[in-house]
């Protein structure tokens, strides 16, 4: 059971390198190789993946130019999805007789925290790109007395983003380990399937939440505001009938 938690493989200048970091390096190589192979052999697969990611992000960032956010959010989704399901690979025997266990990189709390910190800074970066540095800061502190609450909210959602991914991956792998200790033959297979499903679902949720956080940092799109200006003469009708308001929103989203 002690081997379940991240092990230190070697240390460089006093910095301990754990097996999750080594697994991350191997994972990066695997992703690169797969990308090159698929691009050479089956380019349509890559297009399908791109369409899927565009749909996923377009649902959440509807109305914005998603080409700006697609590279970041897409690579985040691919990285987290690979990281969550990477523990199905077996242990690699090293030349020295030692064994290098391949583990899911997100099982170590440091990997999700790093990803969440990247998301935290990207929210502010994209917000400043969209509405300028001063405009973004002014929008952030629009009622000044609510600024502390805003800061607390930003920090707590970053922590919860990291801890959610870590806890989910750790708990499903813990279930696999416990079932494997009880019955080692065939019975863990469905549990491993559940592990894979949960990992992919968590990758989807991580990307979706990152997209939602980024969209909260952006201003309303230009055409959106113009549409509000057009429908301004009749705000009472929209207030009386909430369903007409949602219909209005849909028609505005469809506008090119």
């Amino acid at each position: 059971m002690d081997r379940f938690f991240p092990q230190v493989v070697f240390s460089i200048f006093g910095v301990e390198v754990r097996d999750t970091v080594v697994s991350t390096w191997i994972m990066m190589g695997v992703i690169l190789l797969l990308a090159i192979l698929i691009r050479r052999r089956r380019p349509t697969l890559l297009e399908m993946l791109l369409d899927f990611l565009e749909d996923l992000i377009g649902d959440l960032l509807g109305g914005y130019r998603i080409e700006r956010y697609l590279p970041f959010l897409g690579s985040l989704a691919i990285f987290v999805a690979f990281a969550n399901i990477f523990s199905i690979l077996p242990t690699i025997p090293l030349p020295g007789g030692a064994m290098l266990p391949i583990v899911a990189p997100t099982r170590d709390l440091n990997t999700p925290i790093a990803l969440a910190v990247v998301v935290f800074f990207s929210v502010h970066y994209y917000g400043m790109l969209q509405q300028g540095v001063l405009g973004y800061l002014k929008n952030l502190a629009s009622p000044v007395f609510l600024l502390p609450l805003e800061i607390i909210g930003q920090i707590s959602r970053t922590v919860s983003l990291a801890v959610r991914l870590f806890g989910n991956v750790l708990s499903t792998e813990l279930i696999v380990v416990v079932v494997f200790m009880l019955i080692p033959l065939f019975v863990p297979l469905p549990v491993i399937g559940l592990n894979l499903f949960t990992g992919l679902l968590q990758a989807y949720i991580f990307t979706a939440l990152a997209a939602v956080y980024i969209s909260t940092g952006l201003e309303e799109p230009e055409e959106d505001q113009r549409a509000i200006g057009i429908t301004e003469p009749e705000p009472a009708a929209a207030m009386l009938e909430p369903r007409s308001q949602t219909g209005d929103r849909h028609s505005r989203e469809r506008r090119p």
Partner: peptide, 15 residues
């Protein structure tokens, strides 16, 4: 899905 993930996180904290 998003709100389920947010609700689920309390269980993860307990775990």
């Amino acid at each position: 899905l998003i709100s389920m993930a947010l609700l689920e996180s309390t269980a993860i904290y307990v775990l």
